[in-house]
């Protein structure tokens, strides 16, 4: 039961982040690229003022998987690095904390470019 509740919270909060994104797509002129940028920046800000940590405590992956979680990770990394190294940390903390995800995306991009055939959307129709 406890596990079920945990996953339900993940589902609801994660879904909510996506629902807000869809509302922005459907009812504003914001392009997907702008929405993603807003999400990351919002994540950094919410992380900075301490709002995001309670959400991750509550919803786990429901808060860390959406791109706001990426922003939160950046802010968390910077915070820790500034505490340890002072001003230098402002420049190193963000990338250090998010290195895994970014590097994985680049490497995955290279591997896919090497191994896969180019896509063709008309095939899906």
């Amino acid at each position: 039961m406890e596990i079920f509740m945990e996953y339900l919270k993940t589902f609801l909060i994660g879904g909510l982040f996506c629902l807000i994104g869809q509302l922005l797509i459907d009812f504003t002129k914001l392009t997907p690229a702008r929405i993603l940028v807003s999400y990351v920046v919002a994540g950094v800000i919410m992380g900075a003022i301490g709002w995001y940590e309670p959400i991750t405590d509550f919803a786990g992956a429901g808060a860390t998987v959406p791109l706001t979680g990426f922003g939160y990770l950046l802010s968390k990394g910077v915070k820790q690095a500034v505490m340890e190294k002072g001003l230098l940390g402002a420049f190193t903390g963000g990338l250090e904390a998010s290195a895994g995800g970014i590097t994985a995306a680049v490497i995955a991009g290279l591997i896919v470019a090497l191994l896969f055939k180019r896509g063709d959307k008309t095939k899906q129709m």
């Binding site: 879904g15 997907p32 791109l67 995306a105 680049v106």
Partner: peptide
């Protein structure tokens, strides 16, 4: 739509798809 855009999987898709294209 945003269900696949907002999660980190959407970020990966945005990196991988131009690499392949």
């Amino acid at each position: 739509g945003a269900g696949t855009l907002v999660p980190i999987t959407g970020f990966a898709n945005a990196v991988v798809s131009p690499a392949l294209e």
